[in-house]
Amino acid sequence: MKARILLAAAASVAVSFAAPAFAGATFDAVKARGSITCGVNSGVAGFSAPDSKGEWTGIDVDLCKAVAAALFGDASKVKYVGLTAQQRFTALQSGEIDVLSRNTTGTLTRDTSLGLNFVGVNFYDGQGFMVPKKLNVKSAKELGGATVCVQPGTTTELNLADYFRANKMDFKPVVIEKLEEVIAAFFSGRCDVYTTDASGLASTRATSAPNPDDYVILPELISKEPLGPMVRHGDDQWFDLVKWSLYAMIEAEENGIDSKNLDEMLKSTNPVVQRILGVNGDMGKALGVDNKWAYNIIKTVGNYGESYERNVGSGSKLKIPRNLNNLWTKGGLQYAWPVR
């Protein structure tokens, strides 16, 4: 019994009081606490997963680091909470985490009735198709009568059926629950087509295909999956900080600022660059943080392109092409509002 009293004492250490959700409260509470609590996926390669040393890495993790760098000038001031799909919204609603950066699709209901705000998009995804090159298929419209490997899921299977029905084509689904098995089934030739999110297709091809060049990902995307960070309703200042931490990374890439040329860029005469890096103007002050906020983000995390290539792009094993995630100036959708 004494041991239980001791546990209760130890427990009181673990019970913490986070900010109640009213205006400015999250921002102030995070600042007072000295660290950000960031909800991430407990394991999706490239987005958020622990590496061999148990350190979190990924494009979603980089966003948490960016917010910490903007607020504290130190990207390490983040507490990560690994979350499952069921837990993620509760964790944010209840205040257990300050920001949810967990490859979550923004939708109308999530943005409204869940009491959450979708901040921006750090990865544009969508459901696509992969086929062996030898089938000589150039477009998803030619897939009539195909056998399709698919994992049972909330929307993947549904989107597939909708797409084929809308285009008046037949297909034979091969539904397999486990990721490894569905991949094995596709590469062994049990189905003609494999469908899942485009990021998943690219990484599967790069890591699991016997020969990646033997497979092509078709150009059509049949669903929209804008993935990005979310915060609670009720603290607009906090919302702004998370949003502009993401935008700073995108804006830096657009203006050619990266972690390597950062200190040279401080001498730049371009007023846009000067404003971003805090040489000129009070952009940081408007956000309630140091004017060097964007400088700190780029210094520790890099710009959006660097983060992308390092985690999911050419610098990683996943080798997912930029496509929609390219800058708007290069044919993609990544478009940050101007820092001014």
């Binding site: 427990a11 673990a14 019970v15 913490s16 009081f17 986070a18 900010a19 109640p20 959700a21 909470v81 069921q86 837990q87 509760t90 964790a91 609603q93 209840s94 205040g95 257990e96």
Partner: peptide, 22 residues
């Protein structure tokens, strides 16, 4: 476990948090 991790936090007063492990 689901109750403890998903439902329980919603019943707590605003701003109070009990550690996930606990």
């Amino acid at each position: 476990l689901f109750m403890a991790s998903v439902m329980f936090p919603l019943f707590l007063p605003d701003g109070m948090n009990i550690d996930k492990l606990l």
